[in-house]
Design a protein around this nucleic acid. Sequence first.
DNA 1: CAATAACCGGACCAGGCGGTCAACTTGTTA
DNA 2: TAACAAGTTGACCGCCTGGTCCGGTTATTG
Lengths: 196, 196
Amino acid sequence: MTRTRPLRADAARNRESLLAAAAEEFAEHGLDASIADIARRAGIGKGTVFRHFPTKDDLLAAIVLDRIGTLNDVGGQLLTAADPGAALLEFLTFAARQQRQFDMSFLQEVGDINPEVIAAREEMFRTVGALVDRAREHGAVRDDITGTDVVLLMCAPKHVTSYLSDPPPDLWQRYLAIIFDGLRPQGAHPLPHPSP
Amino acid sequence: MTRTRPLRADAARNRESLLAAAAEEFAEHGLDASIADIARRAGIGKGTVFRHFPTKDDLLAAIVLDRIGTLNDVGGQLLTAADPGAALLEFLTFAARQQRQFDMSFLQEVGDINPEVIAAREEMFRTVGALVDRAREHGAVRDDITGTDVVLLMCAPKHVTSYLSDPPPDLWQRYLAIIFDGLRPQGAHPLPHPSP
DNA sequence: CAATAACCGGACCAGGCGGTCAACTTGTTA
DNA sequence: TAACAAGTTGACCGCCTGGTCCGGTTATTG
């Protein structure tokens, strides 16, 4: 399973530019991005793509894994921040900024297939859960909110802006602020449905 | 342009079941729903679909037009409701319940092509704007929120639940409540970006 | 500098898509 | 009921997609 020999120099180079190209292409066209376009953008042949990743889903999984990984890293570091409320807001800001266009649909699209993605996703739920717990104990978020709630709402700010044909690049900050206000204890109304 | 003779009886029947089947299929599979599947579901031939709607986009536009139309109707009636805050919440509840799965992406996907959809969309912006204005004057929503904000956030409650592989059918109510709390004046923090 | 294994790439394949069309069926009407 | 316009249909078309494969190339290594 694990790689025995180090990657050849050109192969490593190609793999890198492939991942970069795929990330951009997925960001622009969502899951519909075509392998041919990705290969063209990376300046390599289509066959090379499938040599590095046997399936389009595997390629997507690699990118998603990287994104969730840095999300987990950032979240983990913010767990020791002085102000838990500000830490949660900072985490959400980072998450929204990182996620360019393609929304969190990989959570179920890819997640149900690739075990590594499942593991990373579960760690993300734990990390966000811890962030939310700390913020709640600190009185920064309302009592009835859970980590799962925040994970689900995490990508909404960026996503809603995509309904505009040419959204201002920082507009998501506005909707993150609105949603975050909805998470605060001040003026909170009881919620009609239990958290999943 | 306008139809000179009334539709034949069987044709009218087919058109109806076609629209119903297309709505369900679009709801389940999003924009990727195939004409063949829709035709099969409606119990008619693929050619018949194209006789009623020359293009897949036209079919989608017809459904979208219907949805936006009832949205405008409901919104218009709620404009005379006694409690403007409750009226806005009721409107958002209706919108979230109506929109099953396929999110509001038609706002730009189809909207830029079909002039009727553009007109209906503009009326929706006006209607929602009026609802929001009334609610704001009544102190039910914060001062810095606009109708456009609400239109963009309108479909978020249902959308975020789709990240779960098997979401409870009423879970969106929870996130609508959270977002609506974010729209209230109590505990509102200033917003970092102007409304589009 | 060979020799070789790893790597590359684009022609190729099957399948599914939106859309067309000509032969056939059926509701309407006088 | 006869005759015709309107409606239906599924085979078909061109195109694009994810994925395969093998002849040619290239980095590595003794």
